[in-house]
Design a protein around this nucleic acid. Structure first.
Lengths: 224, 224
DNA sequence: GCCGAACCGTAACGTACGGTACGGTTGATC
DNA sequence: GATCAACCGTACCGTACGTTACGGTTCGGC
């Protein structure tokens, strides 16, 4: 729950201690990020959120605090439920993996995620207040921790074969994401509707099962 | 010689028309990007390059022009030779793929590439002067165009099976890059020495061959 | 040796923006 | 209805930085 945020910074992680008003302010920051990219001034934020700059500074300390709180606020909204896999057979495993993949693709192709990652990357360049770490912890690493139990359940059920869950997950990550995220971050217009996401998720999952599935339980049809 | 800085951008691609002095200036910008991240002021650049700001503006128009010229200058240096594959057998194909993968991993994990991508992504957020497009064209898409002939030669030699070279390449891209690039861009310290790159390149290649290799020519040993 | 072009170093200008101060308003508490 | 805290809107301040201007120096051509 509490996110360790580097050496300094020990803000709460989930936004649980934010007032409703503060949450609406941070939502305003989010929409502003999406609308005009990383270029948000404190004045912009104050105007959009209909609050005074003084209040912003009182609540969040400085501009960096506003950005940091916004990233964590968004992160706290993304958490999806874990898939606890009972009665896991090959079909259930495949379906769960496809769900994970589709979910992930939906997240990274959302305009909110793109804007947030851009801000965090821009910040990572200049070094202060580890937004990149927060985004990683709530994106890449969070999904890894949520997926690993499923992979290990698959292994326990003799549906998957691998030594290291982390390594297996990283391959899954690569098969699902491919070049999508970097292209989106660099401004490439990638059309990505629901149907396409579903197809990609299934393809990535079947490729993953080809690589890591036990001999007797490969995918039904290997779709290239 | 004079760089057009208009709406549409129709700059020359390679920096072939830059004078030696201009190239050293752009190299100074590159090292500055690496050293202090996206935060470079015109004064910084002028001081580091031992040139006057007036000259910078004369040569490149404005700050954006400097950044854009720098990105293209770096891009013009990255082009590596194509692999023309004669007498292609399974071993040669595998070796070429591993070379591609290792090369690519080396590039994306270099501090220059990271700095450049960060600048381009930051710019992509604000919209003006498509640095993201330039980086994509010289990174992701350039390597795609260089790899496809090899893939198609592999198919012609009945070593690979796929319908669409683009799709096959994107899977290869995902297997090679996995989460490396996004983690590096977000500031995660990923240790990545030459040995590790070699191992990753081989693993990704063997996974790719498992997925796309013809039945009779899989990888020697499937390394998970 | 003179001229002009190119360029360096630095100073100066204008503005945008982070951060602060302050008067006015709302709303809860008593 | 008096009091007080929280907050809005706006004006204000200081500075950093993009951009321009200018005096001084180097250097090739004649």
């Amino acid at each position: 729950m509490v996110l360790a945020v580097g050496i300094t910074e020990e803000r709460d992680g989930g936004g649980a201690e934010l007032t409703a008003r503060q949450r609406t302010v941070l939502d305003a920051v989010l929409t502003l990020m999406v609308e005009q990219g990383g270029e948000l001034t404190m004045t912009d934020i104050a105007r959009r959120a209909s609050c005074s700059k003084e209040t912003l500074y009182k609540w969040f300390g400085d501009r960096d605090g506003v950005l940091s709180a916004t990233v964590q606020w968004q992160a706290s909204k993304v958490r999806a439920g874990n898939y606890d896999a009972q009665k896991l057979d090959a079909a259930a495993l495949r379906e769960s993996l496809i769900n994970f993949a589709a979910n992930w693709l939906t997240v990274i192709s959302s305009s909110t995620s793109i804007a947030l990652n851009r801000v965090a990357i821009g910040q990572a360049a200049s070094g202060k207040s580890d937004l990149g770490g927060i985004v990683l912890a709530n994106g890449r690493f969070a999904i890894g921790e949520r997926l690993k139990p499923l992979l290990e359940a698959g292994r326990a059920a003799h549906l998957l074969t691998f030594d290291d869950a982390e390594t297996a997950f990283r391959t899954f990550f690569g098969l699902v994401g491919r070049d999508v995220q970097i292209r989106l971050l660099l401004g490439d217009k990638v059309s990505f509707d629901r149907a396409e996401i579903g197809r990609d998720a299934a393809r990535a999952t079947d490729q993953f099962l080809t690589l890591f599935g036990s001999a007797n339980t490969g995918p039904k049809i290997h779709v290239l």
